[in-house]
């Protein structure tokens, strides 16, 4: 049993990157994917189940009526607005994660010098976030009807 080689980071000595650490995840992903494909493939085994497709069986289900027109219809623009707003907020959220993890970690010792600066910066960031949010609200994006 060996200790992984250390690497010096601003926080201190940490284990160096080693791909072997991530092998379990890769194996798990392979197992799950092959399992899913296997189960779906098993639904196509011919001798295990009856197979007699008829014309009515193959129709789109529309509560017993004959289908009217195509299902690929136009959609309300509201859905796209929600998607765009989601993109904005999700990216802002991703900015918050690294900050939240490192801002008050006691290792590193930079808080004494830059802690207040980081605090003010994140406040400014959140104010811009709130302004964007209020703008979207005033524009009526959240008003569904």
């Amino acid at each position: 049993m060996t200790t992984p080689p250390p690497v010096l980071t601003p926080a201190g000595l940490e284990p160096a990157f080693d791909l072997a650490t991530y092998y379990p995840m890769l194996i798990f992903a392979a197992v799950i994917l092959s399992m899913a494909c296997g189960i779906v493939a098993a639904t196509h085994i011919p001798f295990l189940k009856p197979r007699n497709p008829t014309k009515t069986k193959q129709m789109p289900y529309e509560s017993g009526m004959d289908p009217i027109g195509s299902a690929r219809m136009q959609f309300d623009v509201k859905f796209y607005l929600i998607a765009i707003l989601f993109l904005v907020f999700d990216v802002e959220l991703l900015f918050l994660y690294p900050w939240a993890v490192s801002a008050y970690n006691t290792t590193g010792g930079w808080q004494s010098r830059y802690g207040d600066l980081v605090f003010l910066e994140i406040l400014a960031f959140m104010v811009t976030l709130t302004l964007a949010y209020l703008y979207a609200w005033r524009k009526g994006v959240f008003q569904w009807r």
Binding site: Y61, E62, A71, M73, F75, F79, I82, F86
Partner: peptide, 24 residues
């Protein structure tokens, strides 16, 4: 290619992405 499925999936995607932000 079914109207129920399409409406369901559009609703579902809007719902899932909307609630991901408060979740995070």
């Amino acid at each position: 290619n079914n109207k129920y499925s399409l409406i369901g999936s559009m609703r579902s995607s809007a719902q899932i992405i909307s609630y991901e932000i408060p979740l995070g």
